[in-house]
Simulated assay, not measured.
Amino acid sequence: MTSWLTRSRQRLTGFIARRETPDNLWTKCKSCGAMLYTKEFEANLSVCPECGHHERIRAAERFGQVLDEGWTPIAVASPSDDPLNFKDQKRYPDRLKAARAATGEPDAMLLAKGHIRGHQAVVGVQDFAFMGGSMGIAVGNAFVTGARAAIAAHCPFVLFTAAGGARMQEGILSLMQMPATTVAIQELKDARLPYIVVLTDPTTGGVTASYAMLGDVHISEPNALIGFAGARVIESTIRQKLPEGFQRAEYLLEHGMVDIVVKRHDLADTLGRLIGLLMRA
């Protein structure tokens, strides 16, 4: 027979198991390690209240933070999933399928049309969660679609960048997006419409070498990693130790590569004022 003490312990253990703390109740800051209550962290726009670290956020969150209520998504034509029949450890279509299932997004760049502090704008957001925000044909298509939507609406095109570079599974076709997006930027200039880039962590590789650095104004979030090649690659090439904070937003601001570093809480207000000034001019 089971003793009353054993039965009591089993009931107590079951009760405690049913009341386990949810996995997503707390968030650990990736910079300072502080344990943050997730709801409060998200209410603070995913910025650590202890150290000010700006966590990477998803495209839908970015739209909600920057755009006024009532914004609408812009559809983008879907290209072929596997133009080169590429396969490494996995087939490229399988990688795309996994990324779409994990993020709920068709590819790494999404578009929306709405208003920023009352000023009409088309906004594009690269989502690093989708294959590292890598630039492929779909991203190039989205960029061109966004630029031309801005021209049609006679409003600015605001782009939030976050990428590890070109998408290797699309080879030369991914690199062809660099000139394609450059042509779209020239169309914006010909229409005398602002192209504003907000650099977020990380913005690297072919994205930095093309549309990320061709804006009329370059804004960055604090401490964002911005560069072309990685720091270790550069150090091994030039055989010198790089300066402290190299490729971070504040260092690039000091050296003229970024126009202004803006905290996430102030981004919508800053963009609204900037758009008002540029469209008036």
Rank of each mutant, 00 (worst) to 15 (best):
T2H: 03
T2S: 07
T6G: 00
T6C: 00
R9A: 05
Q10L: 14
R18P: 07
L25V: 05
W26M: 15
C29K: 12
Y37A: 10
F41H: 15
F41Q: 09
A43L: 11
H53S: 09
H54R: 09
E55S: 14
Q65Y: 04
E69L: 04
T72P: 01
P73S: 13
I74Q: 12
I74N: 03
A77Y: 07
S78M: 14
D82G: 09
P83M: 09
K87R: 11
D88E: 13
A98N: 08
A101V: 13
R117M: 11
G118L: 00
A121N: 05
G124M: 00
G133F: 06
A142L: 11
R148D: 03
R148S: 04
A152H: 01
G164Y: 05
R167T: 06
L175H: 02
M178I: 12
T182R: 05
T182C: 00
A184V: 00
L188Y: 06
L188S: 05
K189C: 01
T200F: 08
T203L: 07
G205R: 13
G206S: 10
G206P: 00
G215P: 11
N223R: 09
V233Q: 04
F246N: 05
E250L: 08
Y251Q: 06
Y251F: 15
L271H: 15
L271Y: 10
